[in-house]
Structures are given as structure tokens and as C-alpha cells.
Amino acid sequence: MASIVEARGLLKKFGPLVAVAGIDFAVEAGTCFGFLGPNGAGKTSTMRMVCCQSPLTAGQLYVSGLDVRTQGRAIKALLGVVPQENNLDPDFTVLHNLVVYARYFEMPPDTARRRAYEVLDLFHLREKAHSPVRDLSGGMKRRLVLARGLLHEPRILVLDEPTTGLDPQGRHMVWQKLRQLREQGTTVLLSTQNMEEAARLCDWLVIMHQGRILAQGSPADLVREHVGSQVVEVPADAAPAIVGQLSRGDATWEEVEDTVYVFARDREALHRTIGLVPGATYRPATLEDVFLHLTGRGLTE
């Protein structure tokens, strides 16, 4: 399948600071592609370049076959952008926010109103159509920003931490809508720090750290390749004995402050190596384990 977004040697510097260190990636049309990484990893910088809002320092970046350096307006017409921070117009009602936004895409007024009600329905905001934006709750504002991003039926939806600030109900609703959109053929490009979001939504994930791509693949493959299927968290008092056994087995482990994390390919390997340790937590491996394993456990800023 053809790539709808393609980056080669994508580099972004802010003065001496390297935000994106010459990365390559390709997004297949009709999939959900996620950038996962701690703060300062370069996710937002990468997305801003895709959205033609930040010039490339070097490298190549094509969106739908168009060069971001020269065809910004044409590319932006294809994108639905949901920024990290809400930037709604506080002086307008919910409906008027959408109608004004539709003008920027040169949508005829009738189409604009019809589409506005469609996206309001999609995000359960129709009854708020005539409320001023400043009266909406945080979650409703977030939903409205998402609705606005879909107004012109974009081919590619670009979401920067879309569910930050939503309650669990809102988050699940948004996830369901995004899956639905992808099924209808929209390409979804998102950045997130939420492992559950990444695991549930993304077909392909790129884990970024300090401007580089550390690993990429489907969420399930990433877990299998980097941490196996089982994790045991061993508390400090039981740790010394375990570490002795571990050095003889085929599991990998990591000591972090007062806990030893043991990663194993499967349950049997684990039992052969350490057996049942009293006080230890046995659980399936998750994307969070991969993330922490690859990006380290120290604070990044």
C-alpha cells in the first residue's frame, strides 16, 4: 500500500537544540499511526512539520505526494489538525466556531452548517450548538476541537495528545470515533503519552526519545520483541536471591530503585527460572514496559 506521509532524514533544529534528529518513517494510508514518547521526544515538532507549520531544517517530507516545503496550502486543505492546547474562539458560540472555521476551507455556507451539525452529533454536542464556548466544560471544549478537526472531512487527521483532559467516558468515546473514522478510510496520525491509547488505537507505533526513533512496529510486536510476554515485579527484600537465579536463566531483568522487573518470553521460561516468588506481582507485559525499558526511567525534563 502507498505511503500517505513519508519522511526521510527529517531534521529539526532550534538553534543548537536538535528536536528531531534525522528520522525516517512512512505512514500507510487508512491506518492509525502513533508517535509515542516522553516530553521533549520530538513528537510535536514532527507533527508540526507534517502540518506545514514548522519549516524543515533538513530532509524530505511528503504528505499525500506533496512536498511540505512548497505545497503547504494544498497539504493543509487535506489535514484535520487537533492541537495539544484548545484554541477555540471564546467569543463565538459552538456552532459559530465551526461555521467560521469552515470559511477557511472555503466551504459554501449551506455545506458548512450541515457539516457543523453532523460533527456536533458525532461528538454529542448538538444541544450545545448555541452555547458560548466559554460556558463549556473542559471535556466538551476538547470534543469541540476534535469535531472542528473533522469539519471538512480531512483525508488525514493529525492529533496531538487528543484525549488529554478528557474523563474516562470521554476518552473511550473519542477512541471509538477514531476507530470508526479509520475504518471509513481516514488516516490518523497521533502523538500520545497514554499507553492505553497507543495500544488500543494504533496499527503502527513509533517510539521516540530525544529526537530519535528507538523502535517501531505494531503495539503487540513491540511488546513481544522488547519485553516478551510476562513481567514479574519483585519487591526489594526478595530481590537479592532472585537476581542470583536470574543470571543463570534466559529472562532479562532491570533493577529500578526498590523493585526488580523480570521480563520473560513466556510463562514457562519464567517458572523455570525463578518459580513463584512470595510478594511478587505476576502480570502480562504491556506497552508501558516497552516504553520505560527503551526510554529509561529517569525524568526527561
Binding site: L79, V81, P83, N87, L88
Partner: peptide, 14 residues
């Protein structure tokens, strides 16, 4: 404050 410019330049406007 409102980040209105940011919202607008995400559309075909420069």
C-alpha cells in the same frame, strides 16, 4: 491568549 492565529494557520491560510 486565544491562540486564534495558531488555529487559523492550521487551515489553508498562511
Amino acid at each position: 491568549v486565544q491562540r486564534t492565529f495558531e488555529a487559523i494557520i492550521a487551515t489553508p491560510l498562511e
